[in-house]
Design a protein around this nucleic acid. Structure first.
Lengths: 167, 167
DNA sequence: GCCAGATCCTTCACGCGTGAAGCACCCGCC
DNA sequence: GGCGGGTGCTTCACGCGTGAAGGATCTGGC
């Protein structure tokens, strides 16, 4: 029994026997895992009427425990400014997030969770966590830690590399 | 020096000391790695005027070595039928892909790479592969293989789980 | 033969993210 | 003190993917 990417790799080796598809074994699987996970992890959030990116905004605010400016929020959730503007708009309309103008700099505002937003996160986050635990629970504990460790190394590399490219 | 997800995990442990964020260490990093990689791997393709999904269509046709129906192509690239329809349309207009009606079943058609499409793939794929090799080359060979292995296990699990959910 | 239901692809309306442009505002220099 | 450049957010037009609906075609049972 092999995974979908393993099948693809065998096909490639037949087509281009001289090329090394090693990176595809990593990157292809990474992309595929992420795609499946994103598809699936939206399911429990969907029951609360949230998308993943919206949830990401809410939990970013919860995580820092205080207020964030739109710009900080964009950096915190790895999203573009324009995307954050739209998401904030929706979350504000739903009463989950509130805005407070800055006294000194009138370009910025400060965002925080409302009572309702906080309650939502405190309710949903444990559920979501339990759900995600179930998704990876097929992998033994030691294997999961190994995976998290190597992904951490890779992530550090990629962040460095991207930082070098974009700024 | 820690990666971005490690920072986030520390914040979470302060906010909810009783919850286990183990799955986030895996899933969060996976998503973040995939996001960075997708952003970055489009760069060399962009020089050829291709998006990642378009490239995926082309290489799927190259990989199987023959013709594919739109439906097969959708399954092969893990995309929706509607998305494939649009992509085929563009690739046809650019002369990279050609369509041949089926003699027996007039609902379907068979897609193949044109000469030009084949030449494009044979030129771009090695470049792309070299580029991707560079991206993961910071990780030692053994570590990469370990990563590919564990990701394969996880992928197999997720594919099984998703298959169970969706049919 | 023919009809019901299944299959395959395409079309449609819509939502969401994007990069570029726009706008308001702050700061440092002269 | 005012002006140029920089910063922070929002708006805009657009592209792309999505799920649902549509339309054409095949197939099996009668």
């Amino acid at each position: 029994m092999e995974d979908a990417v393993a099948t693809v790799l065998r096909q490639w080796q037949d087509v281009y026997p001289d090329l090394d598809f090693g990176p595809v074994a990593v990157i292809g699987r990474l992309n595929r895992c992420a795609a499946l996970l994103q598809q699936v992890t939206e399911t429990p959030l969907g029951r609360e009427g949230l998308t993943r990116p919206e949830y990401d905004v809410l939990i970013a605010l919860r995580r820092v425990g205080g207020e964030l400016t739109p710009g900080r929020l964009a950096r915190e959730t790895f999203a573009s400014g324009a995307a954050v503007t739209k998401r904030i708009k929706l979350l504000e309309e739903r009463g989950l997030v509130a805005r407070r103008p800055d006294g000194r700099d009138r370009r910025v505002s400060h965002l925080r969770l409302t009572e309702e937003g906080l309650a939502l996160v405190d309710r949903v986050l444990p559920e979501q966590l339990a759900y995600e635990t179930g998704l990876v629970s097929g992998l033994p504990e030691a294997r999961r830690e190994e995976l998290a460790g190597i992904l951490g190394e890779l992530l550090l590399l990629l962040e460095g590399r991207l930082g070098a490219l974009s700024g």
